[in-house]
């Protein structure tokens, strides 16, 4: 159907979900390519989970269309759900059953044969490092272990697309790193990963591309570096700690630099549209200064996010004043 040559696995066109008069998801359009790691960002209630549920055919679509692996999830939900793995927000398991029993139940629902089931479950539990607690009741599991068990379910399914809804919220840093490592392994195998989160640094760490949701719409979409250029105005922030006379003028003269801020007598912050560190070093040497530190700030999603919502708030306030 809408699956094109360059392997679009999820295609949404004007996707809309309304409850009464309220649009929870409002005419969003996006494409996700095979093997991509796509981040859905935004505050709670922005429509991320609803979008995910529409992809799985678990909630009705009010308007527009969505195709997952070429199928319409509203019409062929079994076909879609056979190939897509889903880890819901704060996933639950049957506490009175063991890890293996929980996976055995869902793999039965997947329609796997008994021998295949046992083999895949053992392999999946080994991968998420839960094999030693495989026969313990899930009631004794920590939150991190439950999330990993949820990931094991997706591995058992051998899903082509893994949809993870807020997988790291409420996890301690250690578990978060471990979990994101496992997500990275999935990605390395060619699984398309869809990650919804409001933990920006994590999304930035694992995602190729992000979509920023705000009250049901995608307001920004693209790779993090592109977004930085779009929102922050420049992609790179370089800090220089050096002494030398007239350094600020020399630094500002470097091509590509859009601004130099003097933080202290010997500290400068430059914004530029490319990595200007070599030029900055040359400029310091040319001024006979001694270079003590030269660092580049990766454009952080957090800064983009904060700046974007600030400018939004400013605009609406301005509009209100005008009115």
């Amino acid at each position: 159907m809408s699956e094109t040559a360059n392997d679009i696995v999820i295609a949404a066109r004007d996707l809309t979900k309304r409850y009464g008069d309220v649009s929870v998801v409002d005419r969003i359009t996006f494409d996700i390519a095979k093997g991509e790691t796509f981040g859905l960002l935004g505050p709670n209630g922005a429509g991320k989970t609803t979008t995910i549920l529409m992809m799985l055919g678990l909630t009705e679509i009010s308007g527009g269309s969505i195709h997952v692996l070429g199928d319409d999830p509203a019409r062929a939900p079994l076909q879609v759900k056979r190939r897509v793995g889903y880890l819901p927000d704060s996933v639950g398991f049957y506490d009175h059953l063991t890890a293996v029993e929980n996976l055995a139940y869902t793999s039965k629902l997947m329609g796997l044969r008994p021998a295949e089931r046992a083999r895949r479950i053992t392999a999946a539990l080994a991968r998420v490092r839960l094999l030693d607690v495989a026969d313990k009741r899930v009631a004794t599991f920590s939150r991190g272990m439950r999330q990993r068990l949820g990931l094991a379910e997706i591995i058992v399914k051998q899903a082509e697309i893994a949809i993870l809804d807020e997988p790291t919220s409420g996890l301690d840093p250690q578990s978060t790193i471990e979990f994101l490592g496992l997500v990275g392994e999935l990605r390395a195998e060619g699984v398309t990963v869809l990650l919804s989160s409001h933990m920006l640094d994590q999304v930035q760490r694992v995602c190729n591309r992000v979509a920023l949701f705000q009250s049901g719409r995608i307001v920004l979409m693209g790779a993090v570096a592109d977004l930085a250029r779009q929102v922050l105005g420049a992609g790179f922030v370089v800090e220089v700690e050096a002494d030398g006379s007239g350094l600020d003028r020399r630094l500002a003269a470097i091509p590509g630099v859009t601004g130099v801020e003097t933080l202290a007598a010997d500290r400068f912050r430059m914004t530029a549209d490319r990595d200007v560190r070599p030029d900055a070093a040359r400029a310091v040497v040319a001024a006979n200064g001694s270079l003590r530190r030269l660092s580049v700030d990766e454009p952080s999603l957090e800064a983009i996010y904060a700046r974007y919502f600030q400018s939004q708030a400013g605009e609406t306030q301005g509009a209100r004043h005008a009115a």
């Binding site: 056979r82 629902l109 379910e153």
Partner: peptide, 17 residues
Amino acid sequence: NRRTLSRILAQPIYRDA
């Protein structure tokens, strides 16, 4: 309440089942 419903329904079955 156990939050198992969406995980179960994400498997290839209908709600009927």
